[in-house]
Design a protein around this nucleic acid. Sequence first.
DNA 1: CTCCTTAATGAAAATGGTTTCCATTATTAA
DNA 2: TTAATAATGGAAACCATTTTCATTAAGGAG
Lengths: 157, 157
Amino acid sequence: MPRGNCQGQGWWHGKFRGCGYRLTTGREAILDILSRSEGHLSAEDIYIKVHPRYPNVGLTTIYRTLDVLSNLGIVYKLDFGDGRARYELAEGPKGAHHHHHLVCTGCNRVIDYADFIDEEVELLQQTEKGLGKKYNFRINNHVIQFYGLCDKCNGKK
Amino acid sequence: MPRGNCQGQGWWHGKFRGCGYRLTTGREAILDILSRSEGHLSAEDIYIKVHPRYPNVGLTTIYRTLDVLSNLGIVYKLDFGDGRARYELAEGPKGAHHHHHLVCTGCNRVIDYADFIDEEVELLQQTEKGLGKKYNFRINNHVIQFYGLCDKCNGKK
DNA sequence: CTCCTTAATGAAAATGGTTTCCATTATTAA
DNA sequence: TTAATAATGGAAACCATTTTCATTAAGGAG
Ligand SMILES: [Mn+2]
Ligand SMILES: [Mn+2]
Ligand SMILES: [Zn+2]
Ligand SMILES: [Zn+2]
């Protein structure tokens, strides 16, 4: 059984070490869970998934790690207005998967969509450029989210 | 001195009464402050502005009233990611003043902009229509915000 | 491998915006 | 005026997140 495989499970090690962060069990566990989970996990969601396999990783470490990951650009910190932050991997080993969000205010379901991304991205770039020039702003992030009721919640009167 | 003037100061009374809400001093005070203030006030900001003139309006009432106003569509509840909700009047007596936001993550300054609104709104409408059809969603709200560093914060290295 | 510096950690306590409770007050329809 | 009940304020509860601090463990130097 060959050692030292560098595909997949360890792709963030470089980014981590490059910024002077230590590689710890907790951090690997959290990234492991994030990369094998679909969707938008809260800190507690992650804690619950990590805990069975790594019972000595505390919730505090989850928060601290997510903060680091978010600063490194490895995860996005999302806010869907339900009072807790949610996180998703910015990109897997396979590359980026840019998308925006459609949030149901009835059941809190969140749909990733990428259908209109091309037009949106183009407009966003124009807008960012224009705003940046006009207001002397260095824009480095945007939030686009649609809120409404999904088919199920819409049916219920 | 004529009584019963209906311009300005009381334009929301109708909307209020129409929904079965009572008109109270606290509610009028809060709307008064909101309509004579620029910008994006937190509940506590409003409390501080209301308190000198109406010392017996509590913070709880501010929260409750803002919730009602937000449900009635009279104010927008905004989240700029600084851990507290902010509120702005949806429209004054003069009518709507649609705009989006540019948020400085350095100093939390928020700039209202309306420059690219037309194009944005058009794209939004298209997107809402497309998404609504594709995912069977009734979209009734969207959030567009740009985050970055303002000229001042950008200068500080 | 061992040592040593110090980054990282977990548990518990603190924080802080917002909500809930509940006894009291005030609005409004009759 | 009166009665029904919506609205209120103050205190306590809530709850996601952060801070504190004593302990642990990464990882570079030797
Ligand atoms: Mn997503
Ligand atoms: Mn605004
Ligand atoms: Zn739903
Ligand atoms: Zn700034």
